[in-house]
Design a protein around this nucleic acid. Structure first.
Length: 340
DNA sequence: CCCATTTGACCGCA
DNA sequence: TGCGGTCAAATGGG
């Protein structure tokens, strides 16, 4: 069903994404220049604007009719007291390529959250994407049948110390040697600063001080944008292929807040510097050159050409949400929509 | 020494 | 039973 978002909304979206595109260009330009305090600061503001805009756009996208089912599929860390995972935690998804062409419906069972992102490899020939702003510790590597390259398993460095459940899997794309598929599982609950212990308060501090590393910020941004693209593409595809589905809105349409401090991730541990011997200069790493803009362009195009914005079912709703939040029941969602 | 990675074994689910 | 995911001992680097 066409909605308010249909006509005027889409135009607005297009407009906003256009602005985002522009902002990204500026950001890119800034990043190319030598990193001095001023430019870093400007980068922060740019990122802030970009985030705000995209956030708003996403908000529009998922603001369907007016029904907010009180079902809370994304209660982030809805941990019922220490959860039972004392020793082993198993979360199973089939993150990479789900051959199934038919969109299987997956109830939003309180699985773990995850997001998939495709990022470019580190510069020149490094092995693995650039730093994403979190400190990870590799705990395993496996050869995956059908895949040319092994999959690496990482977990938050602070898992032991802070019980941070965040994990990620990194696998080089079969085809593109320069691209890596990264699947993030769980949400970071670790707290970076931890300065002056004092009272034991702060359970899950989601906000943190922003750090001066624009790279980390950009990384996160890029990840989000990439995801957003995916979402847009999925939405477009859904719109084109599927007839109207179960209407249902994404709960938690709270104000766009998780982004208080600019570049910082919506959570985060200490953010150390890049893995390569170049902190901020070249960004030769994940190639902002074309990639970042490409991402934005894709999103732009997707929304621009999108047929009536689809009404999304649970799964796609999750998609919408995970676009800018850390909540996404990936499971069988999106077969191979990401990247052509 | 401490900490991160490596690497094969182990284990649970489909 | 096979595959994907995790554990943990060994190893290497700062």
């Amino acid at each position: 069903m066409a909605d308010a978002v249909e006509s005027g909304g889409r135009a607005l979206l297009v407009s906003e994404l256009g602005r985002v595109q522009d902002l990204v260009r500026q950001l890119e330009q800034q990043l190319r220049a030598p990193a001095d305090a001023a430019s870093v600061d400007l980068c922060r503001r740019l990122v802030h604007q970009i985030v705000a805009l995209t956030d708003h756009s996403i908000g529009m996208l998922r603001a369907s009719p007016a029904d907010l089912a009180p079902s809370p599929p994304l209660s982030a860390t809805g941990s019922p007291i220490s959860g039972g995972d004392a020793t082993s935690d198993h979360h199973h998804h089939h993150p990479f390529r789900a051959a199934g062409a038919s969109p299987k419906k997956r109830k939003a069972t309180a699985r773990w959250t995850s997001q998939q992102v495709r990022v470019s490899a580190a510069g020149g020939g490094a092995e693995g994407p650039a730093d994403d702003g979190h400190s990870w510790r590799k705990y395993g590597q496996k050869d995956i049948l059908g895949a040319k390259h092994p999959r690496a398993y990482y977990r938050c460095t602070h898992r032991n110390s802070q019980n941070c459940p965040a994990t990620k899997q990194v696998q080089r794309a079969d085809d593109h040697p320069a691209l890596f598929d990264v699947v993030y599982h769980g949400e970071h609950t670790c707290r970076p600063p931890a300065a002056a212990g004092g009272s034991g308060g702060a359970k899950r501090a989601q906000q943190q001080q922003h750090n001066p590393h624009a790279q980390a910020a950009l990384q996160g941004l890029a990840a989000r944008l990439t995801v957003a693209t995916t979402t847009a593409a999925a939405a477009a595809a859904a719109a084109a292929a599927l007839p109207p589905m179960t209407p249902e809105s994404c709960p938690v349409r709270g104000a766009s807040s998780p982004w208080s401090p600019v570049g910082s991730d919506s959570n985060g541990c200490l953010q150390h510097q890049g893995v390569s011997p170049c902190p901020v200069p070249g960004y030769g790493d994940w190639a902002p050159e074309g990639d970042l803009q490409e991402v934005v362009s894709s999103a732009f195009a997707a929304v621009s050409s999108a047929a009536p914005l689809p009404v999304l079912d649970d799964e796609f709703m999750s998609l919408e949400c995970f676009a800018f939040d850390h909540n996404f029941d990936i499971d069988t969602a999106m077969p191979s929509l990401y990247y052509p």
